[in-house]
Amino acid sequence: MRWWLVQRISAAVMAGYILLLLARLAILQPKGYAAWQVFWQPVWWRMLTLVCFLGLVVHAWLGIRDVFRDYVFNPAWREWIQTAAELLLLFYLCWACYILWP
């Protein structure tokens, strides 16, 4: 039950971020590399992006866990591909941190 709730909350977080992103894009209208860099400069914006990405990782994790539970019937196989997906998501999270704070 907890995870069922977490998936919905993370979805709401991402939806909020996307609306904010669209609003910021519309207001600042970054054209060219310099403007694009300025767009990603503020620390609060990077923090928000990281929060959103954290939500995305959790959401994706729960989402594909659901998919595997629905369609992969052999418990051993399911454990394996689930672990693989989890490691992949963890890697993406590290990657996102690296991009935001090179």
């Binding site: 694009w36 860099q37 990603w40 995305l56 994706a60 993406y92 990657w95 996102a96 991009i99 090179p102």
Partner: peptide
């Protein structure tokens, strides 16, 4: 997801 991350990284 990886394409998205790669795009963001390259553009920055």
């Amino acid at each position: 997801l990886p394409c998205m991350l790669w795009g963001l990284q390259a553009s920055l």
